[in-house]
Amino acid sequence: MEISTTLSEQPVDDARLAEILANPGFGTHFTDHMFTVEWTPEKGWHDARITPYGPLSMDPATAVLHYAQETFEGMKAYRQPDGSVATFRPEANAQRMVLSSQRLAFPELPVEDFVQAVDALVEVDQRWVPEAAGEKSLYLRPFMIATEVFLGVRPSQHVTFMVIASPAGAYFKGGIKPVSLWLTEEYTRAGRGGMGAAKTGGNYASSLVAQQEATAHGCDQVVFLDGQEGTYIEELGGMNMYFVYEDGRIVTPETGTILEGITRSSVIELAEGLGHKVEERKISIDEWREGVASGAITEIFACGTAAVITPVGSLKWDGGEADSVTGDEGGELTMRIRQALVDIQYGRAEDTHGWMHRIG
């Protein structure tokens, strides 16, 4: 792509930026610029540009507002020990967006254009990438929306792809602690033939009421069962799951109706590199409960872009509870895999997998 750049005339000053980066939180502060490119059947992808960050102007009849035709990605840029910046497996995010686009009837943005767009924005706003201390990073949100002005159930003939960025602090502010889970037996996240494997906002919207249910029962997160039999573990509201067995095996729910997480596949590679057999298969809620009770399951953890890897503690459901298998701390293998992953992301360990993509 040929990308034009219009720099902001009112960038955040250095003193204010230092305050933001000292305590960025998550998703509350945004960089000085944003990337945009548009698509129509006649022109294809065109008018790629970086402009000052600002509000969008939309007609009330813009398609995305009525039919939820949209996809997005979540990824991060990390400050490296030499001061440079690198992203983690951007090609994998780009390829996943291609798959999401196919499911949502969007035009496909080529992988190389996706990576170029992310690179361009990070390069312009590189001063927003925090130092690595405390697992800070620059969160990147590429997204695609239907921007044709029309009412009617068909694919939009005008599409906009954008990238915005937001500095992010550590997910765990008081140290890594196991999360408590609520098992929802009323709500499901996706079904066979649905959009569970696409990264689209509707999947997350459907999880909100179940998350409210979890919060009401004093739990941090909600875990979903499959929509067909109501028996098999799928995923959390925004994270994939793993179960470690006493013989060293690791089991993670198979994909098809769940999101194929970038962190998920990375964890599988790291675990196999440490000599652990990883099984991608159906795992029932009964196998979970019985495995915890018998001691067959020794660790449980979840993973995603925001939290990286988080230990799982207790599981509650209507009428029962399974205690944490690791108490108030994460399991040994859980924390070993987590450390190996973040060390690669922040450039503290050799990247033998070729996952890190240097910018500039």
Rank of each mutant, 00 (worst) to 15 (best):
T71Q: 05
G201W: 13
G273Y: 12
Q345S: 08
E229C: 01
R264D: 05
V292R: 01
D47I: 04
E112V: 00
N93I: 10
T263C: 12
E19T: 14
G238C: 05
G174S: 09
W128A: 01
T62A: 10
H46A: 11
R103T: 06
F172N: 13
A322C: 10
I283Q: 00
T62W: 11
Q69G: 05
M75F: 10
Y139I: 00
E260S: 15
F224K: 00
R103M: 06
N23E: 15
E108V: 15
K277H: 15
L104I: 09
Y204C: 01
N93K: 08
T305I: 01
R89W: 08
V163I: 10
V308K: 12
P110D: 09
S284H: 04
F301W: 12
I344N: 04
D59H: 15
T5F: 14
F243V: 11
V85Q: 01
L65S: 06
E254L: 08
A133H: 14
A92Y: 14
V325T: 02
E131Q: 15
L274F: 15
A132S: 13
L104P: 04
S207G: 06
G304I: 04
Y53G: 01
L104Y: 11
M162L: 13
A271W: 14
I337S: 00
P110G: 07
D226L: 07
A94K: 00
Q69N: 14
L65K: 10
G194Y: 12
R358M: 02
G331Y: 03
E329R: 06
V64P: 03
E9Q: 15
E73K: 03
L121K: 08
S8L: 02
M162H: 08
G191E: 10
F88D: 01
E123P: 04
G327T: 12
T257Q: 07
A168I: 08
E73G: 00
M75P: 00
G54Y: 12
T352R: 15
S84P: 13
T5H: 13
L17E: 00
E287M: 04
N203T: 08
A349N: 12
G237P: 02
E91L: 08
R264V: 01
F106H: 13
S156Q: 01
M195Q: 14
E135H: 15
K199W: 11
L333M: 07
L21M: 05
G25E: 08
A18I: 13
S166Q: 01
F224A: 03
K76S: 08
E229G: 05
N23Y: 15
A216C: 09
H33W: 10
G194I: 02
A68F: 06
M34G: 02
E123N: 08
V223W: 00
P107W: 11
I262C: 03
N203G: 06
L21R: 00
A48P: 04
A133Y: 14
D13V: 06
E186F: 11
V37P: 02
Q69W: 11
R103E: 03
G27R: 07
M97K: 06
L341S: 03
V312N: 14
T200M: 03
Q80D: 13
S206C: 07
D13W: 08
M34R: 10
D323H: 10
S100I: 10
Q95D: 14
D323W: 00
H66K: 05
F72Y: 14
K199E: 02
E9N: 13
G331I: 12
G25P: 04
S57K: 13
